[in-house]
Amino acid sequence: MTTTLNESVPTDTPSARTRKRGTKVRRQRVRAAWTYLAPMLVALALVAGWPLLRTFYLSLTDASLSDTTGAAFIGFENYLVKDDGVWYGLLADPVWWNSVWNTVYFSVISVSLEVVFGIIVALLLNAEFKGRMLVRAAVLIPWAIPTIVSAKMWAWMLNDQFGIINHLLMGLGLIDAPLAWTADADLSMWAVIMVDVWKTIPFVALLVLAALQMLPKDCYEAAEVDGIHPVKVFFRVTLPLITPALLVAVIFRLLDALRVFDVIYVLTSNSSSTMTMSIYARQQLVEFQDVGYGSAASTMLFLIIALAVVVYLYLGRRQLGVEK
Protein backbone atom coordinates (compact mmCIF):
# COMPACT_ATOMS: atom_id res chain seq x y z
CA MET A 1 0.00 0.00 0.00
CA THR A 2 2.70 2.40 0.91
CA THR A 3 4.33 1.96 -2.46
CA THR A 4 1.22 3.19 -4.25
CA LEU A 5 1.28 6.38 -2.30
CA ASN A 6 4.47 7.39 -4.04
CA GLU A 7 3.38 6.08 -7.39
CA SER A 8 2.71 8.76 -9.97
CA VAL A 9 -0.81 9.44 -11.14
CA PRO A 10 -1.14 7.94 -14.61
CA THR A 11 -3.02 10.87 -16.04
CA ASP A 12 -1.21 13.99 -15.13
CA THR A 13 -1.49 17.27 -16.96
CA PRO A 14 -2.40 16.31 -20.49
CA SER A 15 0.99 15.61 -22.07
CA ALA A 16 3.67 17.80 -23.52
CA ARG A 17 1.88 19.07 -26.57
CA THR A 18 -0.40 21.26 -24.52
CA ARG A 19 2.22 22.32 -22.01
CA LYS A 20 1.82 26.02 -22.68
CA ARG A 21 -1.91 25.95 -22.17
CA GLY A 22 -1.15 23.32 -19.54
CA THR A 23 -0.04 25.64 -16.76
CA LYS A 24 -3.34 27.44 -16.69
CA VAL A 25 -5.34 24.24 -16.94
CA ARG A 26 -3.08 22.71 -14.36
CA ARG A 27 -3.60 25.47 -11.85
CA GLN A 28 -7.33 25.24 -12.42
CA ARG A 29 -7.17 21.51 -11.87
CA VAL A 30 -5.19 21.76 -8.66
CA ARG A 31 -7.61 24.33 -7.30
CA ALA A 32 -10.53 22.10 -8.29
CA ALA A 33 -8.82 19.14 -6.64
CA TRP A 34 -8.68 20.90 -3.28
CA THR A 35 -12.26 22.11 -3.67
CA TYR A 36 -13.41 18.56 -4.24
CA LEU A 37 -11.35 17.23 -1.37
CA ALA A 38 -12.62 19.82 1.06
CA PRO A 39 -16.02 18.25 1.89
CA MET A 40 -14.39 14.89 2.57
CA LEU A 41 -11.65 16.43 4.68
CA VAL A 42 -14.19 18.42 6.67
CA ALA A 43 -16.27 15.29 7.23
CA LEU A 44 -13.23 13.32 8.39
CA ALA A 45 -12.15 16.14 10.66
CA LEU A 46 -15.61 16.26 12.21
CA VAL A 47 -16.04 12.53 12.81
CA ALA A 48 -12.42 11.43 13.30
CA GLY A 49 -9.89 14.20 13.89
CA TRP A 50 -11.74 16.36 16.37
CA PRO A 51 -13.28 13.47 18.37
CA LEU A 52 -9.85 11.86 18.64
CA LEU A 53 -8.31 15.06 20.00
CA ARG A 54 -11.21 15.45 22.41
CA THR A 55 -10.72 11.88 23.60
CA PHE A 56 -7.06 12.63 24.28
CA TYR A 57 -8.04 15.76 26.17
CA LEU A 58 -10.88 14.14 28.12
CA SER A 59 -8.49 11.45 29.30
CA LEU A 60 -6.71 14.20 31.23
CA THR A 61 -9.90 15.33 32.98
CA ASP A 62 -12.39 13.98 35.48
CA ALA A 63 -15.27 14.22 32.98
CA SER A 64 -18.39 12.15 33.50
CA LEU A 65 -20.92 11.14 30.88
CA SER A 66 -23.56 13.60 32.02
CA ASP A 67 -21.21 16.56 31.80
CA THR A 68 -18.12 16.58 29.63
CA THR A 69 -17.71 20.32 29.17
CA GLY A 70 -17.34 21.37 32.79
CA ALA A 71 -14.72 18.75 33.60
CA ALA A 72 -11.62 19.72 35.56
CA PHE A 73 -8.12 19.12 34.24
CA ILE A 74 -6.39 16.56 36.41
CA GLY A 75 -3.25 15.76 34.40
CA PHE A 76 -2.29 12.12 34.17
CA GLU A 77 -4.25 11.00 37.22
CA ASN A 78 -6.46 8.74 35.12
CA TYR A 79 -3.38 6.94 33.91
CA LEU A 80 -1.29 6.71 37.03
CA VAL A 81 -1.32 8.45 40.37
CA LYS A 82 0.25 7.70 43.75
CA ASP A 83 -2.00 8.26 46.69
CA ASP A 84 -0.97 7.29 50.25
CA GLY A 85 1.82 5.15 48.86
CA VAL A 86 -0.53 3.14 46.66
CA TRP A 87 -0.60 3.41 42.87
CA TYR A 88 -3.98 4.05 41.25
CA GLY A 89 -5.12 4.66 37.71
CA LEU A 90 -5.37 2.74 34.49
CA LEU A 91 -1.77 1.60 34.35
CA ALA A 92 -2.03 0.22 37.88
CA ASP A 93 -5.30 -1.61 37.22
CA PRO A 94 -4.82 -5.39 36.88
CA VAL A 95 -8.21 -5.61 35.09
CA TRP A 96 -6.89 -3.32 32.36
CA TRP A 97 -3.71 -5.35 31.92
CA ASN A 98 -5.79 -8.50 31.86
CA SER A 99 -7.85 -7.03 29.04
CA VAL A 100 -4.69 -6.01 27.17
CA TRP A 101 -3.41 -9.57 27.48
CA ASN A 102 -6.78 -10.99 26.37
CA THR A 103 -6.81 -8.72 23.34
CA VAL A 104 -3.29 -9.70 22.29
CA TYR A 105 -4.00 -13.40 22.88
CA PHE A 106 -7.24 -13.22 20.91
CA SER A 107 -5.65 -11.27 18.05
CA VAL A 108 -2.58 -13.44 17.61
CA ILE A 109 -4.44 -16.75 17.76
CA SER A 110 -7.43 -15.79 15.66
CA VAL A 111 -5.42 -14.01 12.96
CA SER A 112 -2.97 -16.94 12.73
CA LEU A 113 -5.82 -19.42 12.35
CA GLU A 114 -7.55 -17.20 9.80
CA VAL A 115 -4.42 -16.93 7.70
CA VAL A 116 -3.78 -20.68 7.69
CA PHE A 117 -7.38 -21.61 6.88
CA GLY A 118 -7.75 -18.64 4.52
CA ILE A 119 -4.81 -19.89 2.46
CA ILE A 120 -6.24 -23.42 2.35
CA VAL A 121 -9.63 -22.15 1.17
CA ALA A 122 -7.99 -19.83 -1.37
CA LEU A 123 -5.81 -22.61 -2.80
CA LEU A 124 -8.91 -24.73 -3.20
CA LEU A 125 -10.91 -21.96 -4.87
CA ASN A 126 -7.97 -21.31 -7.17
CA ALA A 127 -8.22 -24.83 -8.60
CA GLU A 128 -10.52 -25.43 -11.54
CA PHE A 129 -13.59 -27.47 -10.71
CA LYS A 130 -17.28 -27.54 -11.47
CA GLY A 131 -19.37 -25.33 -9.24
CA ARG A 132 -16.47 -23.16 -8.16
CA MET A 133 -18.60 -20.03 -8.23
CA LEU A 134 -21.17 -21.72 -6.02
CA VAL A 135 -18.52 -22.65 -3.48
CA ARG A 136 -17.18 -19.11 -3.54
CA ALA A 137 -20.66 -17.74 -2.88
CA ALA A 138 -21.09 -20.18 0.03
CA VAL A 139 -17.75 -19.15 1.47
CA LEU A 140 -18.80 -15.49 1.32
CA ILE A 141 -21.88 -16.06 3.50
CA PRO A 142 -20.12 -15.82 6.88
CA TRP A 143 -18.53 -12.56 5.77
CA ALA A 144 -21.90 -10.99 4.92
CA ILE A 145 -23.68 -12.05 8.12
CA PRO A 146 -23.69 -9.22 10.68
CA THR A 147 -21.26 -9.96 13.51
CA ILE A 148 -24.06 -9.68 16.03
CA VAL A 149 -26.13 -12.23 14.17
CA SER A 150 -23.22 -14.64 13.78
CA ALA A 151 -22.47 -14.30 17.48
CA LYS A 152 -26.12 -15.10 18.30
CA MET A 153 -26.17 -18.05 15.90
CA TRP A 154 -23.06 -19.50 17.48
CA ALA A 155 -24.29 -18.72 20.98
CA TRP A 156 -27.31 -20.87 20.19
CA MET A 157 -25.21 -23.67 18.69
CA LEU A 158 -22.85 -23.50 21.67
CA ASN A 159 -25.67 -23.39 24.23
CA ASP A 160 -24.65 -25.59 27.15
CA GLN A 161 -27.95 -27.42 27.57
CA PHE A 162 -29.59 -27.45 24.15
CA GLY A 163 -26.75 -26.60 21.78
CA ILE A 164 -26.08 -28.74 18.75
CA ILE A 165 -22.31 -28.67 19.27
CA ASN A 166 -22.48 -30.34 22.67
CA HIS A 167 -25.06 -32.76 21.24
CA LEU A 168 -22.74 -33.60 18.35
CA LEU A 169 -19.62 -33.97 20.50
CA MET A 170 -21.46 -36.18 22.99
CA GLY A 171 -22.91 -38.22 20.16
CA LEU A 172 -19.39 -38.80 18.84
CA GLY A 173 -18.24 -39.72 22.34
CA LEU A 174 -15.69 -36.93 22.49
CA ILE A 175 -17.08 -35.45 25.69
CA ASP A 176 -19.06 -37.03 28.53
CA ALA A 177 -20.94 -34.02 29.81
CA PRO A 178 -22.12 -30.83 28.09
CA LEU A 179 -19.58 -28.03 28.10
CA ALA A 180 -20.49 -24.48 29.10
CA TRP A 181 -18.72 -22.92 26.13
CA THR A 182 -19.50 -19.28 26.78
CA ALA A 183 -19.60 -19.35 30.59
CA ASP A 184 -16.57 -21.50 31.41
CA ALA A 185 -13.56 -19.24 31.89
CA ASP A 186 -11.22 -21.71 30.19
CA LEU A 187 -13.43 -22.22 27.16
CA SER A 188 -15.03 -18.85 26.53
CA MET A 189 -11.99 -17.31 24.85
CA TRP A 190 -11.82 -20.27 22.49
CA ALA A 191 -15.53 -19.94 21.76
CA VAL A 192 -14.99 -16.30 20.83
CA ILE A 193 -11.98 -17.16 18.67
CA MET A 194 -13.96 -19.90 16.95
CA VAL A 195 -16.73 -17.49 15.98
CA ASP A 196 -14.33 -14.80 14.84
CA VAL A 197 -12.34 -17.25 12.73
CA TRP A 198 -15.52 -18.55 11.14
CA LYS A 199 -16.60 -15.06 10.20
CA THR A 200 -13.33 -13.75 8.82
CA ILE A 201 -11.79 -16.66 6.92
CA PRO A 202 -13.67 -15.50 3.77
CA PHE A 203 -11.99 -12.10 3.85
CA VAL A 204 -8.48 -13.54 4.11
CA ALA A 205 -9.31 -16.23 1.56
CA LEU A 206 -10.53 -13.67 -0.99
CA LEU A 207 -7.45 -11.50 -0.64
CA VAL A 208 -5.16 -14.52 -0.99
CA LEU A 209 -7.21 -15.81 -3.91
CA ALA A 210 -6.84 -12.49 -5.72
CA ALA A 211 -3.07 -12.72 -5.24
CA LEU A 212 -3.00 -16.35 -6.39
CA GLN A 213 -4.82 -15.47 -9.59
CA MET A 214 -2.17 -12.95 -10.50
CA LEU A 215 0.70 -15.44 -10.20
CA PRO A 216 2.58 -16.36 -13.38
CA LYS A 217 1.59 -19.80 -14.65
CA ASP A 218 4.97 -20.68 -16.19
CA CYS A 219 6.91 -21.36 -13.00
CA TYR A 220 4.25 -23.89 -11.96
CA GLU A 221 4.52 -25.62 -15.31
CA ALA A 222 8.30 -25.68 -14.94
CA ALA A 223 7.99 -27.12 -11.43
CA GLU A 224 5.59 -29.79 -12.65
CA VAL A 225 7.90 -30.77 -15.50
CA ASP A 226 10.76 -31.07 -13.03
CA GLY A 227 8.59 -33.28 -10.83
CA ILE A 228 8.87 -31.12 -7.73
CA HIS A 229 6.44 -32.03 -4.97
CA PRO A 230 3.46 -29.62 -4.80
CA VAL A 231 4.02 -28.98 -1.09
CA LYS A 232 7.56 -27.89 -1.83
CA VAL A 233 6.33 -25.75 -4.71
CA PHE A 234 3.88 -24.08 -2.33
CA PHE A 235 6.50 -23.18 0.25
CA ARG A 236 9.23 -22.27 -2.24
CA VAL A 237 7.22 -20.52 -4.96
CA THR A 238 3.65 -19.68 -4.00
CA LEU A 239 4.15 -18.50 -0.44
CA PRO A 240 6.96 -16.02 -1.20
CA LEU A 241 4.98 -14.64 -4.13
CA ILE A 242 1.79 -14.07 -2.16
CA THR A 243 3.59 -12.69 0.89
CA PRO A 244 2.84 -9.03 0.02
CA ALA A 245 -0.90 -9.81 -0.23
CA LEU A 246 -0.71 -11.84 2.97
CA LEU A 247 0.92 -8.94 4.78
CA VAL A 248 -1.95 -6.68 3.71
CA ALA A 249 -4.54 -9.22 4.79
CA VAL A 250 -2.81 -9.71 8.13
CA ILE A 251 -2.58 -6.00 8.91
CA PHE A 252 -6.27 -5.48 8.09
CA ARG A 253 -7.27 -8.43 10.22
CA LEU A 254 -4.90 -7.54 13.04
CA LEU A 255 -6.30 -4.03 13.29
CA ASP A 256 -9.81 -5.45 13.36
CA ALA A 257 -8.91 -8.03 15.97
CA LEU A 258 -7.19 -5.53 18.27
CA ARG A 259 -10.37 -3.46 18.46
CA VAL A 260 -12.73 -6.44 18.71
CA PHE A 261 -15.98 -5.61 20.45
CA ASP A 262 -19.27 -6.93 19.00
CA VAL A 263 -18.66 -10.65 19.05
CA ILE A 264 -17.41 -10.62 22.63
CA TYR A 265 -20.12 -8.26 23.86
CA VAL A 266 -22.79 -10.64 22.59
CA LEU A 267 -21.18 -13.99 23.41
CA THR A 268 -19.74 -13.36 26.85
CA SER A 269 -20.62 -9.71 27.66
CA ASN A 270 -18.37 -8.30 30.39
CA SER A 271 -16.88 -11.57 31.62
CA SER A 272 -13.30 -11.00 32.73
CA SER A 273 -11.91 -14.04 30.94
CA THR A 274 -12.71 -12.51 27.54
CA MET A 275 -12.67 -8.79 28.36
CA THR A 276 -10.76 -6.91 25.67
CA MET A 277 -9.50 -3.34 25.61
CA SER A 278 -12.55 -2.11 23.67
CA ILE A 279 -14.95 -3.81 26.07
CA TYR A 280 -13.06 -2.38 29.05
CA ALA A 281 -13.01 1.16 27.62
CA ARG A 282 -16.70 1.13 26.75
CA GLN A 283 -17.64 -0.28 30.12
CA GLN A 284 -15.83 2.57 31.87
CA LEU A 285 -17.24 5.17 29.50
CA VAL A 286 -20.86 4.16 29.28
CA GLU A 287 -21.73 1.80 32.10
CA PHE A 288 -19.62 3.45 34.81
CA GLN A 289 -20.13 6.89 33.18
CA ASP A 290 -16.48 7.70 33.84
CA VAL A 291 -15.56 9.51 30.62
CA GLY A 292 -12.16 10.65 31.90
CA TYR A 293 -10.97 7.18 32.86
CA GLY A 294 -12.66 5.54 29.87
CA SER A 295 -11.00 8.05 27.54
CA ALA A 296 -7.66 7.18 29.12
CA ALA A 297 -8.33 3.52 28.25
CA SER A 298 -9.39 4.54 24.70
CA THR A 299 -6.23 6.58 24.30
CA MET A 300 -4.06 3.66 25.44
CA LEU A 301 -5.89 1.41 22.99
CA PHE A 302 -5.22 3.91 20.22
CA LEU A 303 -1.53 4.12 21.14
CA ILE A 304 -1.15 0.35 21.34
CA ILE A 305 -2.75 -0.08 17.90
CA ALA A 306 -0.64 2.74 16.44
CA LEU A 307 2.46 1.06 17.86
CA ALA A 308 1.39 -2.28 16.37
CA VAL A 309 0.99 -0.62 12.95
CA VAL A 310 4.40 1.01 13.11
CA VAL A 311 6.16 -2.19 14.21
CA TYR A 312 4.30 -4.17 11.59
CA LEU A 313 5.08 -1.79 8.75
CA TYR A 314 8.72 -1.73 9.80
CA LEU A 315 9.02 -5.51 10.02
CA GLY A 316 6.96 -6.01 6.86
CA ARG A 317 9.09 -3.63 4.85
CA ARG A 318 12.29 -5.17 6.13
CA GLN A 319 11.11 -8.68 5.30
CA LEU A 320 10.01 -7.65 1.81
CA GLY A 321 13.27 -5.82 1.32
CA VAL A 322 15.28 -8.92 2.21
CA GLU A 323 13.34 -11.07 -0.24
CA LYS A 324 13.80 -8.65 -3.06
Binding site: L46, V47, A48, W50, P51, L52, L53, R54, T55, L58, A63, L65, T68, T69, R259, F261, M277, S278, A281, R282, L285, V291, G294, S295, S298, T299, L301, F302, I305
Partner: peptide, 10 residues
Protein backbone atom coordinates in the same frame (compact mmCIF):
# COMPACT_ATOMS: atom_id res chain seq x y z
CA UNK B 1 -13.51 3.01 20.62
CA UNK B 2 -10.73 5.61 20.42
CA UNK B 3 -13.18 8.26 19.23
CA UNK B 4 -16.15 7.09 21.28
CA UNK B 5 -16.11 9.78 23.95
CA UNK B 6 -15.16 12.60 21.58
CA UNK B 7 -17.77 11.57 19.07
CA UNK B 8 -20.36 11.24 21.81
CA UNK B 9 -19.71 14.87 22.65
CA UNK B 10 -19.98 15.99 19.01
Amino acid sequence: VAVLSGLFEV
